[in-house]
């Protein structure tokens, strides 16, 4: 048994701890404190007004923030369901395809494109030109080719434009989900599936009865990762609509309050809300991870 002095572990943990305290804990606490003070760009000036819960009232009671919260909820449900479902389906189905690697690479490419770049690309896809002019956007070109009128994809509220934005997110993240699922799927022992087949199960039964139960852990990890990603969604909305036409989301509103309206109080309150929304999911993830490690 190797004896170490008590302070030795602290020596190793210390630097990381100091960095986390200084760059994470301290700003977090300051943000919480700041959320009770008024507008302005100062962080701790004595000139600031203490406004109590006014910023919090704004967060949960203003039409702008309610729209953002509602849209974030829509994003969370649709985005997470679609990325996880498509990722899983692609992982399982592409396993049987001859050119699996090539197809998977192609589907994974969007994950390598920056969010802003992807948003610019999709802005072209959704581009609208007046009825009689030639359409430069792929989607509206198709609409016209099928004898329909072009659609203002990013303008028609509340469903068309929000779903159009969510599709961009799904396009970016599905490849990522697929890769993780594919790795998990390939880890399932083939003889299990073979055994099920010999026992007369069809592919449908195998998927629901064998594959899915064995992949629940991975699904949980991927789904929580996606939820964390989608809660803080910002770039796509910022680039494509900047929250106009009722497409606002929480993080974009935070940016506006901070950098456009100089209301650090409200921006801080919104930041804390985002933190509170993400924390339970992080805890869930960490718990699962430690349990897994303990085994």
């Amino acid at each position: 048994m190797l004896h170490t002095k008590r302070w030795i572990p602290w020596l190793f943990v210390g630097p990381a701890l100091i960095l986390i305290l200084f760059f994470l804990t301290y700003p977090t606490l300051m943000t919480i404190v700041r959320s009770f003070y008024g507008k302005g760009t100062q962080i701790f000036a004595s000139t600031l007004d203490f406004v109590g819960l006014a910023n919090w009232e704004f967060v949960f009671n203003s039409p702008a923030m309610l729209a953002a919260l509602r849209n974030n909820a829509l994003w969370t449900v649709v985005f997470t369901l679609c990325t996880v479902t498509f990722g899983l389906l692609l992982a399982v189905l592409l396993d049987r395809v001859r050119y699996e690697k090539i197809v998977k690479s192609i589907i994974f490419i969007p994950a390598a494109i920056s969010m802003v770049g992807a948003s610019v690309i999709w802005k072209f896809v959704f581009a609208y030109r007046p009825v009689n002019l030639s359409q430069i956007g792929v989607l509206n070109a198709l609409m016209v080719a099928f004898g329909r009128e072009p659609v203002g994809w990013l303008i028609e509220r509340p469903w068309v434009n929000n779903l159009a934005l969510i599709v961009v997110g799904i396009w970016i993240w599905t490849g990522f989900c697929m890769v993780i699922f594919s790795a998990a799927y390939k880890n399932i022992p083939r003889d299990l599936i073979e055994a099920a087949r010999t026992d007369g199960a069809n592919e449908w039964h195998i998927f629901w009865g064998v594959i899915l139960p064995l992949m629940t852990k991975t699904i949980a990890v991927v789904a929580t990762t996606m939820i964390v990603q989608v809660l803080k969604i910002f770039d796509i909305v910022f680039v494509m609509t900047n929250g106009a036409y009722d497409t606002e989301v929480i993080a974009n509103r935070m940016y506006k309050e901070m950098f456009n309206f100089f209301n650090y109080g409200r921006a801080s309150a919104i930041a804390v809300v985002l933190l509170l929304l993400i924390t339970p999911i992080m805890i869930f993830n960490i718990r699962r991870f430690t349990r897994q490690e303990a085994r």
Binding site: A127, R129, G152, L154, I155
Partner: peptide, 10 residues
């Protein structure tokens, strides 16, 4: 307006 209101917005 060219393209109507949607044209102006886009």
């Amino acid at each position: 307006v060219l393209g109507g209101p949607t044209g102006a917005l886009t």
